[in-house]
């Protein structure tokens, strides 16, 4: 069938051709520091060192060669115990927080396991810890977070890109 050639060869090649004019020639947008690629802008990566802002829990541990959510049901007892453990750990590392200040996205896994974003509240509650680790003033770090909040103008949700925030953080003196 000739349609195979039209839809499986010509159509993708045409789109591939157009891709050459797209950002980074359609290979995915990257972020570089000093000329070295440190990550893809859209792909979340693991941050667990205490001098960085952290992203969300991931069912695939941010291994971008795959992708998946936890697929845990809302009533699953093991899952609820895991969330409770994440809350407790988070409180140990951030002793200055009240439980009710932790937003749910910081203790639940994303759908793809590669979520590049956290909610603004999720970033702001980490400010004190990061500032202390980096020996920076809290106001300065807080201002940096606020500058990195993407607020939707018409529709959408407010987000913070964790990688971009951390790259900016490294640049802060």
């Amino acid at each position: 069938m000739i349609t195979v050639i039209l839809f499986a060869v010509i159509y993708p090649l045409a789109i591939y051709g157009i891709a050459q004019f797209a950002p980074n020639q359609g290979k995915g947008e990257t972020i570089s520091v000093n000329g070295k690629v440190v990550g893809y802008q859209k792909i979340g990566q693991k941050f667990d060192k205490s001098n960085y802002f952290w992203g969300r829990p991931s069912a695939v541990d941010y291994n971008a060669a795959g992708s998946a959510g936890s697929n845990k049901g809302p009533s699953n007892a093991d899952y609820l115990a895991l969330v409770q453990k994440r809350i407790d750990t988070f409180l140990v590392v951030h002793p200055y927080l009240k439980k009710s200040e932790i937003p749910s996205d910081m203790v639940t896994a994303s759908g793809s396991g590669l979520d590049p974003n956290i909610s603004p509240a999720g970033a702001l509650i980490q400010v004190k810890r990061v500032a202390k680790e980096r020996k920076l003033s809290e106001e300065k770090v807080k201002a940096l977070v606020e500058a990195n909040i993407n607020t939707p103008k018409v529709m959408g949700t407010p987000t913070v890109n964790v990688l971009e925030l951390n790259v900016a953080l490294d640049g802060l003196k």
Binding site: N71, P74, L80, K99, S104, S110, G111, T159
Partner: peptide
Amino acid sequence: GNPAIEKMGIAQTTGAMEGKEVR
């Protein structure tokens, strides 16, 4: 949001987030 997580006392202002993307 998830009532079972609500009971743990954290803020679910953004709703049920397990399996969802922040964006």
